[in-house]
């Protein structure tokens, strides 16, 4: 793994702290809201992994595209989707970024080219290939960033996609969020070779393993990789070594890992370690930290209020969004039966 850069400007340090805290605190709130049954269905928290989204996504240009998984709240927030729209989506309200139809696992936003929220493991990789292919064919100087968990590496679609990206030299940044578990299956129990970045190398893709708990390392690696993609028109691959502190989803009793392991990883928390480092270097003060917390808390409070005040889509709209709106688009709902002739 690359050496850790150690110095960071006050401005950059504060920004990273704020970004990661916004994700963390928002998701802590989500867990609470789940308990209150405001958020339903599946809810997968990113807590512990914030450095990845916070380190990569701010390096993107406005025209770049992002493809993510069902654990994508942080990515959506970093991409600039408002917390209001994210929370409203998790409530299932019309004001949500997917109009309420998608929920937590399916956050979308065309404005920021945030292409979901895919809940089929590895399902996003071929999509990212296609987005990049379209850019290449249309000579658009854009990059597609594709986030996925290490569980996806066992799927055929992962290998097929990496091969295509390399074969066609597509501008894709693959970001594997290796948090060591796919639900309850530890990486070593699912992969014969656990150095995931080496798999990408085997396809001839420039590939690096990165300390995903350190936002600076993540950011440096992302910047280098994006530069390479933009200048050389090739794909690149980053294996982010990270860890999820919470259960896989709200249904997971966590029988497959030791509490001590979780505790050890918590020592590497990307937020507390950065905060400690910046304080030790006397780049930031306790007042700065308090101010950041306050900013995040205020944003969350407003977002919850926004989601609460949002509206349920009328049931009459059920058949919407299946096809482009047109005369031919609507299949009649279960029609009545024929009545007898008089």
């Amino acid at each position: 793994m690359n050496d850790k850069p150690s110095q960071v400007s006050r401005e950059q340090g504060l920004q990273w702290l704020l970004d990661m805290l916004r994700i963390r605190r928002m998701e802590e709130k989500c867990a609470e809201l789940y308990g209150e049954e405001k958020i339903r269905g599946f809810l997968h928290l990113y807590i512990g992994e914030e450095a990845v989204a916070a380190g990569v996504i701010p390096e993107l240009e406005a025209e770049d595209a992002v493809v993510a998984t069902y654990r994508e709240h942080g990515h959506a927030l970093m991409r600039g989707i408002s917390m209001n729209a994210i929370l409203a989506e998790m409530y299932g309200k019309q004001e949500g970024c997917s109009g309420g139809r998608g929920g937590s696992m399916h956050l979308f936003d065309a404005n920021t080219r945030f292409c979901g929220g895919n809940a089929i493991v590895s399902g996003g990789l071929p999509l990212a290939i296609g987005l990049a292919l379209a850019d290449k064919m249309q000579k658009q100087p854009r990059v597609t960033v594709c986030f996925f968990g290490e569980g996806a590496v066992a799927e055929g679609e992962f290998h097929e996609s990496l091969n295509l990206a390399a074969l066609w030299q597509l501008p894709v940044l693959f970001v594997c969020e290796n948090n060591l578990y796919a639900m309850g299956t530890a990486l070593a129990r699912s992969e014969s070779v656990t150095d995931i970045h080496r798999k990408a190398e085997s396809y001839g893709i420039h590939s690096t393993a990165v300390d995903g708990m350190d936002v600076m390392s993540v950011n440096t690696a992302a910047r280098l990789a994006l530069k390479k993609i933009r200048t050389e028109q090739v794909p690149a691959f980053l294996e982010m070594r990270t860890y999820r502190f919470r259960a896989h989803s709200m249904f997971d009793p966590e029988l497959y890992r030791e509490k001590t392991e979780v505790e050890q990883w918590k020592q590497l928390c990307p937020i507390t370690t950065l905060r400690a480092r910046l304080k030790a270097q006397q780049v930031i003060t306790d007042e700065d930290i308090a101010a950041i917390e306050q900013t995040a808390a205020a944003e969350i409070q407003a977002a919850v209020a926004f989601a609460e005040a949002g509206h349920w889509e009328p049931v009459e709209d059920l058949m919407k969004y299946v096809y482009t709106e047109s005369e031919n688009s609507v299949i009649p709902a279960q029609a009545g039966i024929q009545t007898p002739p008089p």
Binding site: G41, R101, W312, D317, L318, K320, I337
Partner: peptide, 23 residues
Amino acid sequence: APLARVCTAEVPIPYPSHLEQAA
């Protein structure tokens, strides 16, 4: 009498409960 069916409405299943149940 004519045969009849009660099936799921022809829409991908929406997330909000009221719409899902309506489907």
